[in-house]
Amino acid sequence: MAPLEGDAAGARIGVVTFPGTLDDRDAARAVRLAGATPVNLWHGDGSLQDVDAVVLPGGFSYGDYLRAGAISRFAPLMGKVTAAAEAPGSPLPVLGICNGFQVLTEAHLLPGSMVKNENLHFMCRDQKLTVENASTSWTNQFTAGEQIVIPLKNQDGQFIADEHTLDQLEGDGRVVFRYAESNPNGSRRSIAGISNAAGNVVGLMPHPEHAVEPGFGPDSSGADRRFGDTPLASGTDGLSLFTSVLNTLLVA
């Protein structure tokens, strides 16, 4: 998809770095390739620098030693992110990827939690997903039911929540991404990503920022052979999350 032009091209999207964050430069690259301007935000700062949206990237913040995301949620900047994400009127779009998703659950912006993968190993593979909800701030450039392939790489990727919460997520259409064909890590109901009720906060375990450039994403590894009857991945399926938020900002 071509980067959006016009007003959204001036959008400034913050990418937060915590100590131990790994995919911040990748997330910034994805923002840039989508046509917006990435703004580096430091966890210890007290200002969001007037960004239009925020990405909490993947990694092992504070080593994930206590629980993934448990220490980062107390960062000074997270207070600002939480407040802005829940602001009435025009809440700030926030995307949490992998460790960022884990931070969002620890910060209670999203329900549930992540525990170790069922096989107890770190797992890196190209993962097929079904887009369940194509109306959130971060998924409006997809169509519901569409299948995409982006990398999955984590140690604590098994999404869990109680039955009531799961039913509620399903009923409210807040399951945004679901693992397709096989559940890689034992996540409840094969959930790969969810949103808050307003749809401005989205968290997912797989990494869209690693599927934004042909040749440097899922099609470079050949791991697509695991998908049986799936054509070769385009390698750039993740870019639409970033163009989606630009579209959201344009419309808003």
Partner: peptide, 8 residues
């Protein structure tokens, strides 16, 4: 079990 994607 190794991350081959990080750094992009």
């Amino acid at each position: 079990q190794y991350d081959r994607y990080v750094q992009g």
